[in-house]
Design a binder for these strands. Structure first.
Length: 103
DNA sequence: GGCGTGACTTGAA
DNA sequence: ATTCAAGCCACGC
């Protein structure tokens, strides 16, 4: 089974207005956090809301991998998030843990 | 089948 | 508080 697909599924299940971390997904899939980020790297052509996935601090570490680095922040702000200096200010409030949501 | 790599995480200096 | 190093695991070559 390809973990990428599982990662995609989880990311696609992230509710609108919520975000999650690579580690949370990795934990849910019982895998390494780096794998999640790497999976996202292959999600470019797919319909994956990768902008809803940030690192455990709520920092938009992967923005540089978007077609336009500002696109990630724009999408997040568009969904009601507040991003300052590439970081979500209400991160813990909008944090969505797949492990708790999907159990 | 081994080696390097990465959009991460955690703990110690 | 900030910086450094090591651990983590699946994928591609």
């Amino acid at each position: 089974m390809q973990k990428f697909e599982e990662v995609y599924e989880v990311v696609k299940l992230i509710p609108l207005g919520k975000v999650t971390s690579y580690g949370a997904i990795a934990k849910y899939l019982s895998t390494g956090a780096r794998m999640v980020g790497w999976a996202m790297n292959s999600s470019h052509n797919l319909n994956i809301p990768a902008h809803r996935v940030v690192n455990f601090k709520g920092v938009l570490t992967g923005k540089n991998h978007f077609s336009n680095p500002f696109l990630m922040q724009e999408l997040l702000e568009k969904e009601g998030h507040k991003v300052v200096n590439n970081q979500l200010i209400n991160f813990k409030e909008v944090f969505w843990d797949p492990r708790l949501a999907l159990e």
